[in-house]
Amino acid sequence: MPEPLDTALTEVRALLLDPALTRAVAAGRRRGQRPSVVRAELRPVALKAGTRLQIATSDGDRPFTRNVAPGAEADAAVDALLAEPFGNWHVETVDATVQLRVTKSGEAQVHRARTARTAAEPGGHDRVKEYLLDPGDPIFAEIGGSAAKRRQVDAFLRALAATLPDDLTGPLRVVDLGCGNAYLTFAAYRYLSQRGLDVHLVGVDVRPDQRRRNTDLAARLGWADRVTFVAGTIADAVVDPAPDLVLALHACDTATDEALARSLRWGARWVLAAPCCHHDLAAQLRTRPAPGAYDLLTRQGILRERFADVLTDALRAALLRLHGYRAEVVEFVDSQHTPRNLLIRARRTGAEGTRAQRAEYRDLVDQWGVTPRLETLLAADEG
């Protein structure tokens, strides 16, 4: 429920000046206002002169860091930051996490959670479990909080964190293509907003009932103005303006190709795609003789399907590189949780593929006599 902003900021002030503070981030802006810096991060540091509160700010071009002493100096520095019209505050202490977001009406939407801890380690020391999203976060009461789901969410968020730059600021538009029940969509929004980013996220799914369900859930979480859903296909759903970050998690077979093609059409800065099923190239391999001695790779059905998985994702990554992206294929989650555990992670560089890379790609597809769906989609766009 919304709270008076002054009351919520008083709580934040106490946490910022508490010796138990571990980290705090302020970012974003309130409606119709603009802070003098785009981001501020606070954390305690141990110096020879004693413990200091380190305040790192950025104006969008240059960072500035200063260390203030406890007492009047820290009080004044914290009060000055709290007077800035930041739209979000994320504060972590040894025992608690507080997330404050200023609503359009000027009230505070506050989430409070206890820091998750594991059982005491041998020797009697407590150890804080390193989750990117607190397992006690109320979001898990809505999306499901089994241990397996929390591990999958954490693995996905780590891949997301590794994709985005640490100094990312400003508004971030995200689209999740083929979001389904959207539990990773909501987890992504939660994590990104806790980083102090001004996030707007759109989930796309072909089923109207999923759109209604997910929209209701966003309303219950208090995110209806930031997380929205539309019903439509990956290729044709109306998404405006174009996103900075595209997610496509477990879109089946050529739906992943459609998501990648649309990401390129948008010129998205970052893409995370976890492919699911690779029937298209597997079917093509069944009707073509394997080159040379490679018949042993495709003669057995199970081996042909697994080889098709590898070939499909290798060609997808190669096509992304040819179209101005740095692309990697990495492990998404441990294979004990799902056999579909690869993630294509791409970042736009704007550097078009070299002649050698184009020749390498063409040699591979010609040798196997296949036509990747992504190539067909991109050729249609270029045509």
Rank of each mutant, 00 (worst) to 15 (best):
Tyr325Glu: 03
Pro19Asn: 02
Phe229Cys: 08
Leu184Ser: 11
Asp280Ala: 14
Gln284Cys: 14
Thr371His: 10
Leu303Met: 14
Pro208Gly: 04
Leu364Trp: 03
Thr338Arg: 14
Val330Leu: 10
Ser193Leu: 13
His323Cys: 03
Cys276Trp: 11
Tyr183Phe: 12
Ala119Lys: 13
Pro208Phe: 01
Leu5Ile: 12
Gly178Ala: 02
Asp126Met: 13
Val153Thr: 13
Glu328Leu: 11
Leu322His: 08
Ala251Met: 02
Ala283Glu: 15
Gly28Thr: 11
His90Gly: 12
Arg31Ala: 12
Ala119Trp: 13
Leu377Asn: 03
Leu315Gln: 09
Leu311His: 07
Val68Cys: 04
Gly170Phe: 12
Ile344Ser: 01
Ala308Trp: 09
Ala231Cys: 05
Arg150Lys: 12
Gly301Phe: 06
Gly145Arg: 04
Thr97Glu: 13
Ser146Glu: 09
Arg262Ile: 12
Pro70Tyr: 04
Leu364Gln: 08
Thr371Glu: 14
Leu249Asp: 11
Lys48Met: 13
Asp363Gln: 13
Arg127Gly: 03
Asp61Met: 13
Thr103Ser: 08
Ser36Trp: 09
Arg207Leu: 03
Leu311Gly: 02
Glu121Cys: 11
Thr228Met: 09
Ala314Asn: 07
Leu177Trp: 12
Arg151Met: 02
Ile302Tyr: 14
Val238Gln: 15
His323Glu: 06
Val25Phe: 07
Val37Gln: 11
Leu53Gly: 10
Gly170Cys: 11
Asp334Gln: 06
Ala159Ser: 09
Phe140His: 05
Glu92Met: 05
Pro138Ala: 09
Leu168Gly: 00
Val230His: 08
Ala46Ile: 14
Leu249Ser: 06
Arg158Gln: 04
Ala318Gln: 14
Asp280Tyr: 11
Asp6Phe: 08
Arg43Gln: 15
Thr65Asp: 11
Glu331Gly: 01
Ile55Ala: 07
Val175Lys: 05
Ala273Trp: 00
Arg373Met: 15
Gln33Cys: 10
Val38Thr: 07
Val206Trp: 00
His278Gly: 00
Asp216Trp: 10
Gly136Ser: 03
Ala74Ile: 04
Gly145Asn: 01
Ala56His: 12
Asp334Asn: 08
Asp198Tyr: 12
Ala27Arg: 07
Ile139Phe: 01
Asp95Leu: 00
Arg321Ile: 05
Val174Lys: 03
Ser58Asp: 14
Asn88His: 15
Leu100Tyr: 02
Ala46Ser: 15
Gly136Lys: 06
Arg286Ala: 15
Val271Pro: 10
Asn88Met: 14
Ala273Phe: 00
Ser193Phe: 11
Thr298Phe: 03
Leu264Lys: 01
Leu378Ile: 12
Arg39Asn: 04
Ile143Met: 05
Glu305Trp: 07
Thr7His: 13
Pro339Leu: 05
Asp363Ala: 11
Val12Ile: 09
Arg114Trp: 07
Ala69Gly: 11
Thr312Met: 07
Pro4Cys: 05
Asp134Tyr: 09
Arg345Gly: 03
Val227Asp: 02
Arg195Leu: 09
Thr57Asp: 06
Asp236Phe: 00
Phe156Arg: 09
Gly32Trp: 05
Ile234Met: 02
Arg23Tyr: 10
Arg150Val: 00
Pro241Gly: 06
Val91Pro: 00
Leu42Cys: 08
Phe186Thr: 01
Gly222Thr: 00
Arg23Asp: 10
Ala8Ile: 06
Asp154Arg: 04
Leu53Trp: 11
Arg265Leu: 10
Thr163Asn: 10
Ala24Trp: 09
Val78Gly: 01
Ser263Ala: 15
Ala26Ser: 03
Arg43Gly: 13
Gln284Val: 13
Asp257Trp: 04
Gly50Lys: 04
